[in-house]
């Protein structure tokens, strides 16, 4: 009984009848980060909101035979519409999320959050909501916590606001999505900025 005979016997009777392509597809599908269905359409939500605002403005604009509404002398009415929709269609501020430690199950999830102004703006009454979503079949929101580190502050052009937050520990390892949502007022109009980041908890 030689080494070669043992190897040949093992090889000859273990020929897999399956498909490598099918198995690879199963694996790669599992590895793709699972995003909640509404996230897939998020790219359309901003233009859609802009379109709705535009329609509202168009329907609320004065009819031709009514007295002309007073406007600022250097801004034409069509440009005013553009300005009103501008902050909805464009990204005005950016959120950065950075874990502060090696995240393990059973330990608090400490995060550093930066909010950077990308344009000339004046954001006030900022409120921060953090969600932790389990990336499994149900996309279950494990934790939702509100923080108010900047409620008394204003984010102006060129400024960066920073804070540290701690989310409650999770007991199950796996892939999670951290979602940070910041609400505030810009020129007395409510705005929402959000950002997501995937993390693996061991």
């Amino acid at each position: 009984m030689t080494d070669e005979q043992i190897k040949k016997a093992l090889l000859d009777y273990t020929n897999w009848p399956g498909s490598p392509e099918k198995l690879w597809q199963n694996i790669i599908t599992e590895l793709e980060p699972k995003i909640p269905w509404w996230k897939k359409y998020q790219i359309w939500l901003t233009p859609m909101a802009a379109a709705i605002v535009l329609l509202i403005l168009v329907f609320n604009s004065p009819v031709p035979n009514q007295p002309e509404e007073q406007i600022e002398p250097d801004v034409a009415p069509e440009n005013m519409i553009m300005m009103r929709t501008f902050f909805i269609a464009e990204q005005i501020a950016e959120i950065q999320i950075a874990p502060l430690n090696n995240i393990q199950r059973g330990t608090p999830i400490d995060l550093a959050i930066n909010l950077t102004a990308l344009q000339d703006l004046n954001l006030t009454r900022l409120a921060l909501t953090a969600r932790l979503i389990k990336l499994d079949n149900d996309y279950q929101v494990i934790t939702e916590q509100e923080f108010n580190p900047w409620s008394e502050q204003t984010l102006a052009n060129g400024q960066v606001l920073t804070t540290k937050i701690g989310l409650a520990p999770v007991q199950e390892s796996g892939d999670y999505l951290i979602e940070i949502e910041i609400q505030g007022l810009h020129n007395q109009e409510p705005i929402v900025i959000n950002q997501q980041q995937m993390i693996e908890i061991n």
């Binding site: 009984m1 005979q5 043992i6 016997a9 093992l10 009777y13």
Partner: peptide, 10 residues
């Protein structure tokens, strides 16, 4: 047959 016997033995 010998190969089968060896595989069976393993």
């Amino acid at each position: 047959e010998k190969e089968q016997a060896l595989y069976n033995a393993i």
